[in-house]
Each structure stands twice: as C-alpha cells, then as structure tokens.
C-alpha cells in the first residue's frame, strides 16, 4: 500500500478550530444577551477587554490565572498517563489546610523560612490527598475518577471541621481560621492594586511541567503509559507506579494552588476558598486537549473571560452565568471540531 505524505499540522491549522469555536460561542451567547434586552456589543467589549483596559483589570486577570492554571495541570498531568484526576478541588482544600496549619503553628518564623514551609505544607498535604486514590488504584484497582470525586466531599467536611475548630476566628461570621503568621504572606510584586508572587510560582510550575513531560525520562514513561499502558508494561515500565505517581504529582500541584490561596490571597483558611476553580481547570485541560504547552494560554483566556464576566455584571447587570455558557460552548465546539475533522 502506498502512503501519501500527510499535510503537516501548522500552528495556523491548529488555531483555526479554536478561533472558530470562540466566535461561534460568543455569537450564540450574543443571541441570548440580545433577547434579554441588553446591548450585545457593549457586553462583548466588556467581556473581552476589561482585562486589558486598566492595570487593575490586568492584575485581576493574573490573580485569577494562578489557581486556574494550577488546577488545569492537576488534571492534565495524570491525563498524560491516561488517568482522570477530578479531585483537584479536594487537593486544593487539603493543601490550603496544610499551608494554614504550618502558618498558624509557626507564626513567628521569618518570611525566608515560613513562606517556603507554608507552600511545602500545601504541596505535601495535597500530594498525600492524591496518594489516597493512587494507592486505592494501585492496590485494589479502584477507579480513580470515583475516588478523587468522593474525596472532594471528604475535604469539604475537613475544611469545615478545621475552620470551626480550635483555630476558629471568633470574630468572623463565616467558618474561618485565625490568620497565619505575617512571615507566611507571599510578597507583593505590585503594591497597588496588589499582585502577589504566586504568579511567578505558577509560571515556574508551567515550565517544570513542560520539561518534566517532554524532556525527562520519567515524563517519557508517563507519556508511554498514557499512549498504551499494555505496551509500556511489556517494555519494562512499571505502569501502576506511573499511575500513582501522576496522581500524587497532580495532588501536589493542587495542594500548591491551595497554599497560594492561603498565603497570597486570604492569609487564613476560609471555607469556600476553592470557588469553582476545579470545573474551570477541567474545562481548560479539555480545551487544551491535554497539551501542557497550551494549558497556560487557555488558562489565561479563561481568566480574561472570568474577569470580564464580573465586570459585565457590575456595569451592565448581565448575569455572570452568561460567561459560563460561553466557556462551556467553547469547550463543546472545540471537541466538536475534532469530530468534524475526522469526517
């Protein structure tokens, strides 16, 4: 049989379905905004350009970007090995608890020591939280989707317990702990509006994940495992170990996102600090189709939409949910473009 050379995928070719998906999604939502009697063009303008009009908007976007990109990696790293981690939320919460615990127990340490310890507390706690489904998968072959989702619910109870326990802040009306030591606060890169150093950590993680999955031997084994676990096993890769490792790494990244929320944003543990980062992280990972190179860009785009959505609600009174619909539709159309291309 003769094989013809396939046309090489260029960057332009890859981008076309994305741009098309965004345009179609915006158009679809525009119809609803118009039907509800709002000014469509103004809404578009607010959604897309709030992030770039003022320094405040841009910094808001970067702050949104940090947890989103980390949550997306907590999903895509195990995905490279063919495993689905839906437990980023629980890993974030438990990571936040770990970070807060370190910060509350050692309040007098200088920043040079306390910041790394707080972050490490979050990473270790999150990794342990990821190790539980990993171990259940390794030992008893229990589906990781199930266990990671269920552990999210356990983490809700756990944060409630910690935030209403002995560390409770009696002055707060919402389950909240007392603040961590001052030395545990992430330094600010920009004072007004405040931008904390978490952005640097997030970018470092992005670079590390990229090098890990594409350059390292362990990353090679991760990719091989995801590509065909049976063949990887036949050629000497300990596939089950790779499964566990991938979820533990994801747990560490998820835990780090929780630690940054504590040390950079809240400076204490607050119930509900996870927002809807998990769902957005999944959407980012899926729109990027698991490609770790693409994750930061997609995460930034979603952060822009999120910031635009709040602004739209504030200034135009259009409900933020409109933007959730845009995000969901972008994902659907990107996935659909695969099906269309195959035909």
């Amino acid at each position: 049989m003769t094989i013809m050379a396939k046309s090489k995928p260029t960057i332009l070719n890859t981008l076309i379905p994305y741009v098309a998906a965004i345009l179609i999604a915006l158009a679809a939502v525009g119809v609803f905004i118009a039907l509800m009697g709002f000014d469509v063009l103004k809404a578009y303008y607010t959604i897309l350009f709030t992030s770039f009009r003022t320094p405040n908007g841009f910094i808001q976007t970067l702050l949104k970007f940090i947890p989103l990109v980390l949550q997306a990696y907590a999903f895509t790293v195990p995905l490279a090995a063919g495993k689905f981690n839906i437990g980023g939320e629980g890993q974030l919460i438990v990571g936040a608890i770990g970070a807060a615990a370190v910060g509350i127990l050692l309040p007098d340490l200088p920043p040079l020591l306390l910041i790394p310890l707080v972050l490490l507390g979050g990473i270790v706690a999150g990794a342990l939280w990821g190790f539980i489904p990993g171990w259940l998968l390794y030992k008893f072959n229990i589906n990781e989707i199930l266990t990671t989702v269920l552990l999210n619910f356990v983490s809700f109870a756990l944060i409630n317990y910690v935030a209403t326990g002995p560390w409770r802040d009696p002055a707060a009306g919402h389950p909240t702990t007392i603040p961590i030591g001052r030395g545990g606060y992430l330094p600010l890169l920009v004072d007004n509006p405040p931008l904390h150093a978490g952005i640097i950590i997030a970018l470092l993680v992005a670079v590390a994940v990229y090098f890990y999955t594409t350059r390292s031997t362990a990353g090679y084994e991760l990719v091989a495992t995801g590509a065909n676990p049976r063949a990887a096993g036949v050629f000497g890769i300990n596939v089950k170990y790779m499964f566990v490792l991938s979820i533990v790494i994801a747990g560490g990244i998820g835990g780090l996102s929780g630690a940054i929320e504590v040390s950079g944003v809240q400076h204490r543990l607050i119930e509900g600090l996870q927002h809807n980062f998990l769902v957005l992280g999944l959407i980012i990972g899926l729109i990027a189709k698991g490609n770790n190179m693409a994750v930061p860009f997609v995460a930034f785009f979603i952060a822009v939409l999120e910031v635009g959505a709040s602004a739209m609600q504030r200034t135009l009174m259009i409900p933020v949910e409109m933007v959730f619909i845009v995000e969901a539709l972008v994902l659907l159309f990107v996935l659909l473009s695969d099906v269309v291309r195959r035909k």
Partner: peptide
C-alpha cells in the same frame, strides 16, 4: 498494536 506500539506517541 496491543503489546508493542504507542499509537498516541
């Protein structure tokens, strides 16, 4: 296909 090859890599 099953034991020797990584189709996605």
């Amino acid at each position: 296909l099953l034991d020797g090859f990584l189709p996605k890599a």
